[in-house]
Amino acid sequence: MNPIARTLWNPIVAKEYRSRMRTWRSPLTITIHVIVLGGIGWAVFSAIANSVAGFGSSGGGVSPSSMGILLFTFLILFQIVLLAFITPALTSGAISGERERQTIDLLFVTPLAPFSIIWGKLLASMSFVVLLLVLSVPIFSLVFLFGGIELDQVVAAFALTAVTAMTLGFVGVAFSTFFKRTLAATVASYGAAFVMLVGSPGFGLLFPTEYDARAAVVPAPPALALISPVVPLLVIASGQPVSTYGTRASVDSQLQLSKGAGNGACVGLPNGGVSCSSNGGFSGYSPGTGTASPGTTLHTGFLAGLQYWQASIVMQLMICAVALALSALLLPPIRRFGWRRNRAPAAEPA
């Protein structure tokens, strides 16, 4: 086996698979995940059915495709929330648990590189997450009964969900390496999950990108706001951009535009839609054309040219790389940093 293959597929992966799947927690986690997700799907389905029945035979204007979009949106968002609870639990004890169990030294005296140890733990945890995602596929297939969601949207959503879980996993292992105790690592990991899922969109709302209301192109939201998968998943589900999320027309340009247009600050969007905004907050979907691209593509910034979900994946992969590097750096019992040099103190008199 060549060194790269040996690093990527090392004994820790097989050991983790074996010991993880022999505990009662794994089947319980799988069962709860499927039941909760199935329950959400059933609840949304029932709510839609009741609402349609309430409107009578006319159907109240609710088309099957919009039912499918609604069901898909609920399912994919709840799946993210579930994984945000499960993934830190899988990874935050990966290294600190070895320390608490006093097995870490036994690994350190083997030829396994720190990166291999980290990678083995991550691969085993991420495989379990992938298993959860695969098991949720039949539930998501309900969406296709209604239509409105294409296969490429499902694939994109699952890819983003998987990368999000991976990011949460990498961050969890990094905290597990940094903190000696699993409890501290778990708290920090859940904190990071909250920041990622809620704080990142909040950043986009609080600190939007300012732009000239007369500009032809709406700029991209701040890159930090794209770390969260929530907005990109909404974009995937709706097939439309969230028009003014993370962006705000500058006051001066709005005033000048309103002088010219009469009232309001309305901005023409590249996809043909029009967005009117007075405060720069989340103002809902733009009345656009309804196709995935190019309306869901970012037009400015270093992520220009990417769709929302692709930009989110790029941002998260960057976080993964940093977390992985930090973990591998922090793990070894003897860390060699260039600025530190030990000197022997003088011997005490006998």
Binding site: R18, S19, T23, R101, Q102, T103, D105, L106
Partner: peptide
């Protein structure tokens, strides 16, 4: 071959 004074073992193995 190193055997520490306190060591743990993996459960389920």
């Amino acid at each position: 071959g190193y055997m520490p004074d306190f060591f743990g073992v993996y459960d389920q193995l």
